[in-house]
Computed example of a mutant assay.
Amino acid sequence: MKKFTSLCGCLLLTMCLGMTALTPPMSAEAAEREKVILDADMVDLFDDGVAMMMLAESPKMDLKGVTIVIGNTWVETGTASVIRQLEGIGRTDIPVYMGVNKTTRKGRFANMKEEKRLFGRGFDSHLGAAGYAQPASWTAEYRNNYLDEPVMRPQKQAAADFIIDTVKKHPGEVTIVAIGSAANLAAALDKAPEIAPLAKRVVYMAGAFFCEGNVMPTSEFNVWIDPETAKKVYRAPWKEQIFLPLDVCSKELMSNADFKDLESRIKSDRFKAMWESHYATPLFRNDPNYNNYIWDVLAAAVAIDPTVILESETLPIDVDDRYGFGYGQTMAFHGFGPEGAQNAKIVYKVDRAKIWKMVEDVFNKL
């Protein structure tokens, strides 16, 4: 009996060794990749699309999923856009989740014209989803915008639930890059407020702290579109919050020379068509002095490599969600902030050369 037991032990050891040989251990590089969720009001290429592709293509990042929220676009348009671009770079393995498709304040879009009349308006006339009718479906948007049939499909799970599940599954390890309105994160916090201290950090492209707004005199678009959710999210007890606000975004321009250089790198018909239909393309072509911004790209770059931050300040911050002149204004306090305000790192200056190299690396693969 002892001999039989010994034989069984040898056979078991041999089988285990064989299985180990068939299943090599995860490489150190793969194990160290940063887990990230991108929460975006997606558009083609600049700026949300490029930010997404930077995260998807970086060897440092493990993009667990892309959640789509209202903002620049309706969720239907954003979903079609993210799917088209992921298909184009061969990353159909990255799941897409549809999220919140409305603002907190009822009648928000219908009253925007009157709001601008009463409270003033900024230099940017951008209205995002408020500027066009809600599409019938994401598939209708895909077919209409790309004259093709999608290969991918979004997941059935809601965006907020995916965020909750992912953060809880990997406590202390998930970076959330939030480059749209705050509605998805607010929905996740409403369901599971305990996720805030479990996330590693949140990196936002949002706000205008010590500079003028863009769509309103004091407000930046991603906050102004739904200030109530922004206030709720920014006041949550996250371990770390990093903001790429207009204070830095307004300094980082894409020149006509940058435009032409990137255009020359695109090889695929899919992305050439996106480039041609981008709103900024005729502006660059018709005016050699025209510049544009790269907003969301900065948030993706900071998530990939925090050393691109050259100048920043950590202060308590808050959002004005009272309907009036300051609706959607982000504030930072050099003294004590109001009760409930959380600390956040506000970025003022970034390493342009490092960030632009990341952008070029993306375009070299298009």
Rank of each mutant, 00 (worst) to 15 (best):
K2N: 11
G9P: 00
G9C: 12
C10M: 14
T14K: 01
M15R: 08
C16R: 03
M19S: 10
P24K: 15
A28L: 14
E29F: 00
E29V: 09
E34S: 02
K35G: 11
L38I: 06
V43G: 05
M54K: 04
A56D: 00
S58M: 01
P59S: 10
M61S: 11
D62T: 05
K64H: 09
V69W: 11
W74A: 06
G78C: 12
G88I: 01
G88S: 08
I89A: 07
R91G: 00
M98W: 03
T104C: 13
G107K: 05
R108Q: 11
E115T: 04
E115A: 06
K116V: 10
K116S: 15
R121F: 09
G122I: 00
G128C: 09
Y132R: 12
Y132Q: 13
Y132C: 11
P135N: 03
P135A: 06
W138Y: 13
T139E: 10
A140S: 15
N144T: 07
N145C: 08
L147F: 14
P150D: 05
Q155T: 01
K168D: 00
T175N: 02
T175M: 03
A178E: 11
G180R: 06
S181I: 02
A182W: 15
A182K: 15
E194W: 08
A199E: 01
R201T: 07
V203G: 04
M205K: 14
C211Q: 03
V215I: 15
T218A: 15
T218R: 08
W224H: 09
E228W: 00
W238S: 10
F243L: 06
V248T: 08
C249W: 02
E252D: 13
N256T: 06
D261S: 12
S264C: 03
R265N: 04
D269L: 10
M274I: 01
S277T: 12
A280H: 08
T281M: 01
P282C: 06
N286W: 02
P288V: 06
V297L: 12
T307G: 14
T314I: 13
T314N: 15
T314H: 15
L315T: 04
I317Y: 12
D318E: 14
Y323P: 07
G328A: 10
M331V: 08
P338T: 08
E339L: 13
K345L: 02
V347K: 00
Y348D: 00
D361P: 08
